[in-house]
Nucleic acid binder design. Structure first.
Lengths: 196, 196
DNA sequence: GATTTAACTGAACAAACGTTCAAATCAAAG
DNA sequence: CTTTGATTTGAACGTTTGTTCAGTTAAATC
């Protein structure tokens, strides 16, 4: 046997990435074998290498793609150019909405950074830094205008992001609270923690 | 060759656990082999099995021990029985201090939960739930007394813990800020987010 | 000093790992 | 219908994996 009926790279490629994403999120990069990914797709392990040079690149492309999506989506939001308070609310709601919609991507973006080799790690890390700088910029402008008051802008940035990303550990669509309610609850806490 | 000079279970045992802890935190449970742990201790892989029945138990004992330490230390604090505001400040400072002092333990307690088998996972998870209930109890009492105001006590609990544990991602002893300063900065944010 | 017990080595086991590649088969183009 | 190119199989490779155990040596006991 060889090429199978209906096989096409436009179909198999995305399915491989989807399977890798799900399995990496579920069991961790190191614990998932190429044969498991292949089995999930319904293909032999060797076929994966038409789509990725190696396992490491498969992980990197997933993380890289996720960070690109995040920054692109954020740019669309940020271009609205609002005063600090509205900008902060926009960031909080955007962050929660974006992350809650992509639990697997978010999970591996945080958990599997260390599974990247040095070069790939640096790339992804710099994208994360760029995203954090978005929030830090908002806080900084609010401090200068007197709208916000925090002891340390950088620490407040990390504290707020940690708090917001924590939503992913418990939120499930169709649960007790709607997404809008969750956003509002967190926005209230952030507002009170940061606004003068 | 066989038993080596100076070998003793009181020495080798702790060294094995320390090596496993450090390596699991650094590279992840699945990515660390028993031979790597053994090499770090200066022993052959077979010798590890005098101290643990298998690799899984080695991880479980580390996580279980960490959670026991956390709850024991917390009980000493909590027995002070304070009114909500002081109790909340006590919790914030305790949480940061305890976690910052044990970066490796905290890291694997969060990252390697999924590497536990079902039974061990349930055990560790219930200990975590008990710890979260400490904070939730404080918030609940503060809500009843009118000292606090949050939309949802359970969510506020998770939000605060996520925010506080986030300190471990950036704090390094000997850095720009002292531990006391970090505690105060976070306490200020929590206070403002929660206190009426 | 002899004997018992504790601690470790070193080799071995089957299974699983990431990766490669010639051969085979299907899809698309002419 | 033939040819070309895209896609997958299935077997194989050299390593590494967790774990076991008979044999050996040091420490502890008497």
């Amino acid at each position: 046997m060889a090429r199978t009926q209906g096989s096409h790279s436009d179909i198999t490629g995305p399915r491989i990435r989807a399977a890798a994403l799900r399995l990496f999120a579920q069991d961790g990069y190191a614990a998932v074998s190429m044969r498991q990914i292949a089995k999930d797709v319904g293909v032999q392990a060797g076929a994966l290498y038409n789509y990725t040079p190696d396992k490491q690149s498969l992980l990197y492309e997933l993380l890289r793609g996720h960070m690109d999506d995040l920054l692109t989506a954020r740019e669309a939001e940020a271009s609205k150019q609002l005063e600090p308070l509205a900008a902060l609310e926009g960031f909080v709601r955007f962050h929660i909405g974006f992350h809650v919609a992509r639990p697997d991507e978010v999970f591996i973006a945080y958990m599997e950074l260390r599974s990247l080799n040095a070069e790939n790690f640096t790339q992804v890390e710099s994208l994360r830094r760029r995203y954090e700088n978005e929030l830090e910029g908002i806080l900084q402008r609010g401090l200068e205008s007197g709208a916000f008051s925090v002891d340390d802008a950088k620490i407040a940035t990390l504290a707020v992001i940690a708090m917001l990303t924590g939503v992913n550990t418990w939120y499930r669509a169709g649960g007790r609270l709607s997404l809008a309610e969750v956003e509002t609850i967190y926005w209230n806490m952030v507002k009170r923690a940061v606004v003068a």
